[in-house]
């Protein structure tokens, strides 16, 4: 995997990170992740792919079974380092779980006291923008209201890194857009790093500049979004009879992610050289060859389903 992060400062780095729970379930199986400082990295994967477990390991909520991980250069499995990591990190969980028994105002004051770099100016800004009622009990807030409060609590920590686990889940399109714009504006102003998991590929496409796709606990795609768009191509061969079974000469080509055969059409997804594949396939005498760019959604679908079929 080519990587434009080489030599840059990494905010998050994991090497062969693994997590096996007591029941024997292996949630993460050798995850390699590199998130450069200042980037917005979308973390994609199907349900149960290991996204939340990875996030929990990064924040010291769950201990890795093997491998290593560093955030700001600090080991994630060290108790002291973990506190230092959390001091510089804002977090929004999937469930947006907050203290239901507190008022929104009390919860904000409670959180502010734990973060020395708390941004009171941002607090006022987001209170106005998100229209959070300070006197309302957290348990009485709508899902959108909880999400906005959780986001305020994360954004105002003065954090260098935001880790957000499906921050827009359950929100209506208007609220989703508001949250995404707040994230982009925050990163633009504070030059922090954002690492967020999502099932909404369009969201990732909209605000991320990097992406990591995880499937069954392993990284299957990782890199700058522009690089991925540049590298990934779909090469489609049409034959005058049924397309041949996956030919050896294609299988030998580097970068092939997925080959599909349907009637007279042979479709190849590659992140290597399309020209090299076309050269090799010329011997099969296709009647036409077409090279097309692919979307992030196609890359996601092809890579995670390719894992299923063992391609």
């Amino acid at each position: 995997m080519a990587d434009s992060t080489a030599g840059g400062i990494l905010t998050i780095e994991t090497i062969d990170l693994r997590k096996q729970y007591d029941g024997g379930v292996e949630a993460v199986r050798g995850l390699n992740l590199r998130v450069p400082a200042g980037s917005i990295c979308g973390f994609l994967g199907r349900n149960g792919a290991g996204k939340t477990t990875t996030i929990k390991m990064l924040l010291g909520m769950t201990r890795p079974t093997a491998g290593s991980g560093r955030v700001f250069g600090l080991a994630i499995d060290d108790l002291v380092s973990s506190v230092a990591i959390r001091r510089r990190t804002g977090f929004v969980s999937d469930e947006k779980d907050l203290y239901d028994s507190m008022d929104a105002g009390d919860l904000i004051r409670f959180t502010a006291r734990l973060f020395p770099k708390w941004r009171a100016d941002l607090e006022q800004q987001y209170l106005r923008r998100f229209e959070i009622p300070l006197s309302a009990r957290v348990r009485t807030l709508s899902r959108g209201g909880r999400t906005k409060l959780a986001l305020l609590l994360a954004l105002c920590r003065g954090a260098d890194l935001l880790i957000l686990d499906e921050p827009t889940s359950g929100l209506d399109p208007a609220a989703t857009e508001e949250v995404l714009q707040a994230l982009v504006a925050h990163v633009a102003a504070a030059e922090g790093t954002v690492f967020f998991s999502s099932h909404q590929i369009a969201e990732v496409d909209q605000i991320a500049d990097r992406v990591a796709i995880i499937d069954k606990g392993r990284t299957v795609v990782e890199g700058a979004l522009d690089d991925l768009r540049e590298r990934y191509r779909r090469v489609q061969f049409v034959f005058d009879a049924d397309a041949p079974a996956v030919p050896d000469l294609l299988a030998q080509s580097t970068g092939i992610q997925r080959v599909r055969r349907s009637g007279r059409v042979l479709s190849v997804l590659t992140n290597g050289s399309a020209d090299a594949i076309i050269d090799r396939a010329r011997a099969l005498r296709p009647v036409s060859v077409d090279v097309a760019t692919v979307t992030l959604k196609e890359i996601f679908l092809e890579t995670v389903t390719a894992e299923d079929s063992g391609a």
């Binding site: 929990k56 924040l59 010291g60 909520m61 108790l79 002291v80 973990s82 506190v83 230092a84 959390r86 001091r87 990190t89 977090f91 969980s93 469930e95 779980d97 907050l98 203290y99 239901d100 028994s101 959180t111 734990l114 973060f115 959780a150 609590l153």
Partner: peptide, 15 residues
């Protein structure tokens, strides 16, 4: 449970 467990664990305090 869901009433603030992960929020607590995300705070910069040791267990």
């Amino acid at each position: 449970g869901a009433a603030g467990q992960l929020f607590t664990l995300s705070l910069p305090v040791s267990r």
